[in-house]
Measured scan of single mutants.
Amino acid sequence: GKMTGIVKWFNADKGFAFITPDDGSKDVFVHFSAIQNDGYKSLDEGQKVSFTIESGAKGPAAGNVTSL
């Protein structure tokens, strides 16, 4: 299901971020390909987002990341 959280930090050079979920679970890795914005895919620290949890090769990662 959809979860919500806050972007903890975003590394534009490497194209990934971490989200701190609102439910208090541990921070979730985000690859820029999961960001659903049109055009430039970036996130801002402190931004509120919704996302799903996908199981990636290196463990859980956020999918369908959308700005709220």
Rank of each mutant, 00 (worst) to 15 (best):
N64A: 07
K58E: 14
A62C: 15
G56E: 11
K26V: 09
G24M: 03
G1M: 10
K2S: 11
A61T: 13
E45L: 15
G1C: 15
Q47W: 05
N11F: 06
A61K: 10
A57V: 13
G59V: 11
F18E: 03
D22E: 07
L43V: 06
N37F: 11
V7F: 03
L68M: 11
T66Q: 13
A57E: 14
G63R: 07
E45H: 13
D44T: 13
G15P: 01
F16E: 05
N64C: 15
F16P: 00
N64V: 12
Q47R: 06
A17C: 04
T20K: 10
D44S: 12
T52S: 09
I6E: 03
M3C: 07
H31N: 13
V49C: 03
G1L: 13
D27C: 13
F10I: 15
P60Y: 01
S33F: 05
G15N: 06
D23F: 03
G56L: 08
T20A: 09
M3Q: 09
G46E: 01
Q47H: 07
S55K: 13
N64W: 05
N64S: 09
A34W: 10
H31L: 10
I35H: 03
K14E: 09
A17L: 08
G24I: 01
F51K: 00
V7R: 00
G5Q: 00
V28M: 09
G59T: 09
A12V: 14
G5K: 00
I6V: 13
D23P: 00
N11I: 04
G1N: 11
S50P: 01
P60M: 07
G39K: 07
A17W: 04
S25Q: 04
K14R: 07
W9K: 04
K41G: 11
Q47I: 08
G56R: 07
T20H: 06
K26P: 14
N64L: 10
G39W: 07
D27G: 10
V65L: 12
L68K: 15
V7Q: 00
D44G: 14
S55E: 13
S55G: 12
S67A: 05
S25K: 03
G1R: 14
V30M: 07
W9N: 04
A61C: 15
I53C: 14
A12D: 05
F29C: 15
A34K: 12
G59M: 09
D38I: 10
G56C: 15
Y40V: 10
G46T: 02
E45V: 14
A61D: 13
K26T: 10
S50T: 12
D38C: 14
Q36C: 14
T52W: 12
D27M: 07
Y40T: 09
I35D: 04
K48T: 07
D13P: 03
L68W: 00
H31T: 05
K48R: 14
K14W: 11
N11K: 04
V30Y: 05
Y40K: 09
I19L: 03
K2Y: 10
V65I: 12
M3R: 10
L43R: 01
D13C: 15
G5P: 00
K58L: 11
T20I: 08
D23E: 03
I35Q: 03
G1V: 14
S67M: 04
G15L: 06
A62L: 11
I35G: 03
E45K: 12
G1D: 10
A61V: 14
S67G: 15
G46P: 01
E54C: 15
V49N: 00
K48H: 13
V7M: 02
P60Q: 11
I6S: 04
F16S: 02
V49E: 00
G63I: 14
D38E: 07
S67N: 15
K48D: 02
K8N: 05
D38L: 11
G15C: 14
L43D: 01
F29Y: 10
K58A: 14
V49T: 01
Q36P: 05
G63P: 09
D23T: 03
K48W: 13
L43C: 05
I53E: 03
T66G: 15
D13F: 05
A12I: 11
S50K: 07
V28Q: 03
F16R: 01
T20V: 08
I6M: 05
S55W: 11
W9F: 09
